[in-house]
Design a protein around this nucleic acid. Structure first.
Length: 339
DNA sequence: CGGACGTA
DNA sequence: TACGTCCGG
């Protein structure tokens, strides 16, 4: 998913605590999908309330947000709007992959292959309109600000960072770097939590950040050139050049100066090149937004999670304690000036 | 994913 | 204390 320029980037290990005091934009869909694929029952189905409504994404938003606030980090969630038409091919490809996985899932179910059922179902995540609305409703009650992007959420989150509204973007995808985010945080969980890719394999995924300016300096290129490298590798909005990865793209840019010269030298073309460049340089962006925290409404949170969606009060209440405590501890000043 | 709880 | 396993809705 997204552009793979990871081989070129220099990262820094970090922790939540180390980032105390910063404000971050969060790709909301990115987080919700992460939790949808990982919080599941043994048979691979996501958690639901008694009405059958999926709740895994709500756990994700709730627990993750409180962990951030507890660490003194102020989040602003960014939801996807209408995708760019340049993304159509990618979206269609993803749809086909899911379709195929669904068929394989049926086969695996019939065969009783538990492991495969689990692995396949984690790929068939679907976020309905209702699920998204419920995540927003929960954020409202928590007093956490969010924006609906005019188009790509990652673009909105990144430009907010570029323009100084936030200090960084939390996302797993490198597209944010191309969209101009000055700093991108990845694996931004409590501490290097373990992850289960297949089944019983545990991997250490440490929180890290990537600094745009530093990377441009180290690579000796400007942002336009980095965008062009990404385009050569391939993004959600264009097919890249065959057999060209990040390292090769970098060499080509160094040799020819820009993507136009590279393509001319190979006598090749990239579909919608100018539009894709323009999209990364200047994506649709909503400027009039609030990034301020508000006081959480404890009663509404409990009603929403416990009464409406069958969360256990025993589990939710300690988190609400933490939420209120961290708001007092870290954000009281901001809140007082806000009200 | 992230926490609770068991066992060594 | 360290780590594995289970469970959440």
């Amino acid at each position: 998913m997204g552009v793979d320029i990871s081989d070129l980037l220099t990262r820094h290990q970090t922790t939540l605590k180390e980032q105390k005091g910063i404000k971050v934009s969060i790709d909301a869909f990115n987080i919700m999908y992460q939790f949808l694929s990982s919080i599941r029952q043994p048979d691979g189905t996501p958690l639901t309330d008694t009405q059958g409504r999926v709740t895994s994404h709500l756990s994700g938003v709730f627990y993750r947000t409180i962990n951030l606030l507890d660490a003194g980090i102020k989040p602003v969630y960014v939801f996807d709007g209408k995708p760019s038409s340049l993304k159509n091919r990618t979206l269609e490809a993803r749809r086909l992959v899911k379709e195929k996985a669904k068929i394989e899932l049926e086969v695996a179910r019939e065969a009783g292959d538990e492991e495969r059922v689990r692995s396949l179902s984690s790929r068939i995540n679907y976020l309905s309109r209702d699920m998204v609305n419920e995540a927003m409703e929960l954020l409202d009650y928590m007093g956490v600000p969010y924006v609906v992007a005019p188009s790509e959420g990652e673009a909105q989150a990144s430009v907010m960072c570029k323009n100084g509204l936030v200090d960084g973007v939390i996302s797993q995808d490198y597209d944010c770097i191309l969209f101009g985010a000055r700093r991108v945080f990845r694996n931004f969980t409590m501490f290097g939590r373990r992850k289960v890719p297949g089944r019983n394999i545990y991997l250490n995924v440490n929180p890290e950040y990537i600094d745009l300016e530093e990377n441009l300096n180290l690579l000796g290129i400007n942002r336009d050139q980095l965008i062009e490298i990404g385009i050569m590798v391939g993004t959600d909005f264009n097919r890249g050049i065959q057999r060209v990865g990040a390292k090769t793209a970098m060499k080509l840019i160094k040799k020819h100066g820009n993507i136009g010269n590279v393509l001319a030298s190979k006598n090749m073309e990239i579909e919608n090149l100018d539009e894709v460049i323009e999209l990364f340089r200047n994506p649709p962006y909503m400027a009039e937004i609030s990034t301020d925290l508000k006081r959480p409404d404890t009663d509404k949170i409990i009603d929403f999670l416990c009464n409406r969606h069958d969360f256990s009060p025993n589990r939710v209440e300690p988190y609400i304690q933490t939420l209120n405590l961290s708001v007092q501890k870290n954000f009281q000043k901001n809140l007082d000036s806000f009200f």
